[in-house]
Simulated assay, not measured.
Amino acid sequence: MHKKQSEPRSVVRKRAVTELKRSLILEAARVVFEREGLARANIRQIAAQAGYTPGAIYFHYASKEEIYAELLAQSLDRLHQHTRQSRDLHRAPGERLRAAALAFFDYYATHPRELEMGFYLFGGIRPVGLTPELDARLNAQLRAALALIEATIVECGATPSVAARETASLFAHAVGLLILEQTKRVRLFRVEARSLFLSYVEALVERLREANKRPPKRRQPP
């Protein structure tokens, strides 16, 4: 058997340097995006924050949108992993749904800046996008995280169409409460956002359980 040849040290070192530079650029970009918003931020500001020249930034990224997309993609990947790992700690469908939904909510509750990034809220609430290609890729990543919840709703006995509708409702409920929590508006009602979301999830689990108890409707003969 032939031994697998290891890469030359120069190649390994070059890759490590490139990865380090990209991570420094991303961290600098995160600071700039939080301060300026996506619309006002530019490559020159990111370069200054990172201690590089604009040309050095363009060597790694074609645009500020590409940088933003990579930051958001990393965030969505962490969200997906956290949701899946939390769900897979349980076996019963209702418990899996509860765990997945709360993991999704808790991730953004403990990473509010990533919520802002995911919904382009640094510059205020208004329609914002990157490029059609980047938007499609990032939307697919978010959809993949939500698909974990949707699949678990199907495990609870829902049809695919019902599961899709319930997932959309759960997503809207979670995001609305997260924004209320982040803006402190939820204090107007003297309640906690997470407790409200937990009540919603518990009601969903119970509703799905009750739906499974009902006998299927028989079609009337013509």
Rank of each mutant, 00 (worst) to 15 (best):
R40S: 11
F119Y: 15
L148E: 15
E114W: 04
P54Q: 02
R98S: 07
L178Y: 13
H60G: 06
S169H: 14
G123L: 07
E155K: 11
K184P: 00
Y107C: 06
Q220P: 03
A48M: 03
L142R: 15
H2N: 06
G118H: 07
A158S: 14
Q49H: 02
L170Y: 09
E166L: 15
R40T: 05
V32W: 00
R9T: 10
L89F: 08
A140I: 07
G55L: 03
I57S: 01
Q182F: 07
A73G: 12
E192T: 02
A62M: 00
R185L: 11
Q5G: 09
K3S: 06
D106G: 01
Q5T: 13
P112T: 09
S23C: 01
L115P: 05
I125L: 14
Y68E: 03
S23A: 15
I149M: 13
H80Q: 07
L134P: 10
Q45N: 01
T110P: 00
S6A: 14
L138R: 04
P8R: 12
A168I: 08
L121R: 13
E19S: 10
R214H: 03
A50N: 10
K217H: 06
A16T: 09
E150K: 13
G124E: 05
A56Q: 09
F59T: 08
K217L: 13
A203D: 12
E206A: 12
A203M: 11
L121G: 06
P160D: 09
E192P: 00
E36L: 08
F189E: 00
G37S: 02
G124M: 08
E36V: 00
P127S: 08
A193S: 14
T83Y: 04
L134Q: 15
A136C: 04
Q182V: 00
T159L: 11
D77M: 04
T183C: 13
F119S: 01
P54W: 01
T110G: 02
V162N: 10
A136K: 14
R126C: 06
E70M: 05
G94T: 01
I46D: 02
G176C: 11
A47Q: 07
A100N: 02
R91C: 03
Q182E: 08
A109C: 00
L142M: 13
L196C: 13
S161H: 04
